[in-house]
């Protein structure tokens, strides 16, 4: 029997940005059950909810438009499903939009490869221009190796950064807007890029908060579109 594929856009905000991806997965599965949506269950010895998440967010990173596909065995009006999910979710991990998508659409985890980040930087007397120059210098290297959990990953920066970073001042700090192309082999973390951009000796700025504003699907033709 075919399922109804409900795509839900949710936020991970406030203090709940400190949740890990696995914690977000469990929390949303529980919210789906609390909302009493007619979710589909996998077959086999250990049946579990059919649900598929978009690219993971690291601990500490907030997300304004994160995506998950929930497979339902029965049709529920999207507005009704959204309303029930919102009522069953904590405010800082709440769905904001829900709509059905076609079953032939590719899986979110593989297709959603473009991420828009907003990084807030704090630093005594740090200027927009200093941040811009620091970023230009690191991007000019062409390649960046990042160590994470004992592994070294090398990122091809022109590929990983399809758009030029934008730097602007905002109340009490500096905001960097980055567009990152994510890959199956790992994705460039904005905080890693900015840490590399700043001179480790003087450390003129530190990353205060990172927010993923949205994730987009990049088609084979190179066209970017929102999953919802």
């Amino acid at each position: 029997m075919r399922d109804f594929r409900l795509r839900v856009c949710y936020r991970k905000a406030g203090r709940l940005r400190f949740l890990s991806h696995l914690e977000v997965v469990h929390a949303l599965e529980r919210a789906v059950r609390r909302a009493k949506l007619p979710y589909s269950v996998t077959k086999g010895f250990s049946p579990h909810m059919k649900i598929a998440f978009g690219p993971a967010l690291p601990v500490g990173t907030a997300g304004e438009r994160e995506y998950v596909d929930v497979f339902l065995s029965g049709y529920t009006e999207p507005e009704e499903a959204l309303h029930r999910l919102v009522k069953a979710s904590p405010e800082d991990l709440a769905p904001v939009e829900a709509r059905y998508v076609a079953e032939r659409e590719p899986a979110l985890a593989a297709a959603a490869t473009i991420a828009y980040y907003e990084v807030r930087i704090e630093g005594e007397g740090l200027t927009e221009q200093e941040v811009r120059s620091a970023l230009e210098r690191v991007v000019a290297r062409g390649e960046l190796s990042v160590e994470h959990k004992g592994k070294t990953k090398v990122f091809d920066l022109p590929h990983s950064l399809p758009k030029e970073p934008c730097v602007r001042s905002s109340s009490g700090g500096i905001v960097v807007e980055l567009v990152v192309r994510m890959g199956q082999q790992g994705s460039l973390r904005p905080d890693a890029l900015l840490t590399a951009a700043f001179d480790p000796a003087t450390r003129p700025g530190v990353v205060a908060t990172t927010t993923r504003r949205d994730t987009l699907i990049e088609s084979d033709e190179g066209v970017w579109s929102r999953p919802l």
Partner: peptide
């Protein structure tokens, strides 16, 4: 997540 509160 040990210190967050805000659980359901």
């Amino acid at each position: 997540s040990r210190y967050l509160d805000r659980e359901w």
